[in-house]
């Protein structure tokens, strides 16, 4: 697999470490009942999956990668911590 790191360019996936579902957010500490779900339960879709990859052998960025879990095809790669992305704007508002 090749991942187009927004900072470093296209690199082999062996430079990256995988974490999992990128849609999971750390719940608000005032809502402890949400922690179990956030830490343990996964949609685990067969198909498009937003996921977190860490470019540990490169720029150390956490990336949000959209990939098909059936074909391994990668659709988009973006910096997780990029304020311009929609998801982060939502998060900032929340």
């Amino acid at each position: 697999m090749r991942i187009q790191c927004p900072f470093c360019g296209e690199r082999d996936s062996s430079e990256f470490t995988y974490l999992g579902d990128a849609t999971v957010r750390r719940p608000d500490p005032s809502a402890p009942e949400q922690y179990f779900e956030a830490v343990y339960l996964r949609d685990n879709p067969a198909g498009r999956h937003e996921e977190l990859w860490y470019h540990g052998f490169g720029c150390r960025s956490w990336l949000r990668v959209t990939r098909d879990t059936r074909t391994h095809e990668i659709f988009t790669v973006e910096m997780y911590n990029d304020a311009t992305t929609e998801t982060n704007q939502e998060a900032a508002r929340a």
Binding site: L52, G56, S61, W62, Y80, N81, A83
Partner: peptide, 18 residues
Amino acid sequence: AGKVMQHLEHARQVTWPE
């Protein structure tokens, strides 16, 4: 050492980017 570094980067970039 490596695992903690990754963990802290995750906390910094993903959990609390602000």
